[in-house]
């Protein structure tokens, strides 16, 4: 990890309007929780189902897309990445530093609001908040790494990421049961399920498999992004 890369990435990712968008989305989920707590009488099961759909199902892949691609995509697009790459520093270090920023942003803007919303809706008694927090963190880290990789190797990373987040994770996962084994959301759910009170959440992937896949996907995406960045080329055919 390199502190200068971390600092530059944090400034470019969170300096502009992107941070406002992230904060607004984070606030939305907390406000939703407050409104439901005040105006509707929801039980733990309903709160779990809601957060599962809103946070794990939508917010996390979307945030992962924003922070994962935002950590490196704009610099590759405008060419300023060259100032980071033309340095006596391993390219993997650059990826690690950018990933640290992306995961930290995920934690702040997606994991913390999810935990807060759970606490607001069901109170501090249950284990739901901890369960969802752990699941959200696991999913957030993997999404960050995968989308960072995507932005490193593809110019159309945002489009492709959006298709993955919306089509694969939501649609294919719900229609084709077998596809769920390859869904970050299901892996995260499996982690959350193991922590939450029995019956609150259910996942299609066993915990052991989920943990191996989460760690494996995170490590593989991070390693491959570094490998590809080490082979970054500046000019192509015009």
């Amino acid at each position: 990890m390199n502190t200068t890369v971390v600092r530059l990435t944090a400034r470019s990712m969170l300096g502009g309007r992107r941070v406002l968008l992230l904060a607004a989305l984070a606030l939305l989920i907390v406000v939703l929780a407050v409104l439901l707590r005040v105006f509707a009488d929801i039980d733990q099961g309903e709160a779990a189902a809601l957060l599962r759909a809103v946070s794990l199902g939508t917010l996390l892949p979307l945030f992962g897309l924003i922070v994962g691609t935002g950590a490196i995509g704009p610099e590759i697009d405008d060419g300023s990445i060259v100032y980071l790459l033309a340095k006596p520093m391993s390219r993997a270090t650059i990826i690690h530093s950018k990933l640290v920023v992306a995961v930290a942003a995920m934690f702040t803007f997606a994991v913390v609001p999810t935990v807060l919303a759970a606490l607001i809706m069901v109170g501090g008694s249950g284990s739901l908040a901890v369960a969802l927090g752990a699941g959200a963190f696991a999913a957030g880290a993997v999404y960050s790494a995968v989308f960072l990789l995507l932005a490193t190797i593809l110019r159309q990373a945002v489009m492709l990421g959006l298709v993955y987040a919306l089509v694969w994770e939501s649609l294919v996962g719900s229609v084709v049961p077998g596809a769920r084994v390859l869904s970050v959301q299901q892996w995260a759910l499996s982690v959350a399920e193991s922590i939450a009170a029995p019956g609150l959440l259910s996942a299609d992937v066993a915990l052991g498999v989920a943990v191996v896949l989460l760690v494996g996907a995170f490590a593989a995406a991070t390693w491959y992004a570094g490998w590809r960045l080490a082979r970054f080329t500046l000019t192509g055919p015009e």
Binding site: T4, V5, S12, G15, G79, S80, Y83, L84
Partner: peptide
Amino acid sequence: LVPEREATFEYLTGWEFVLANAQLH
């Protein structure tokens, strides 16, 4: 290396930009 493309880290001051390069080295 002085690349042809103009983009730098626009949000930095000139001092911060050059300093960041020094630190990256």
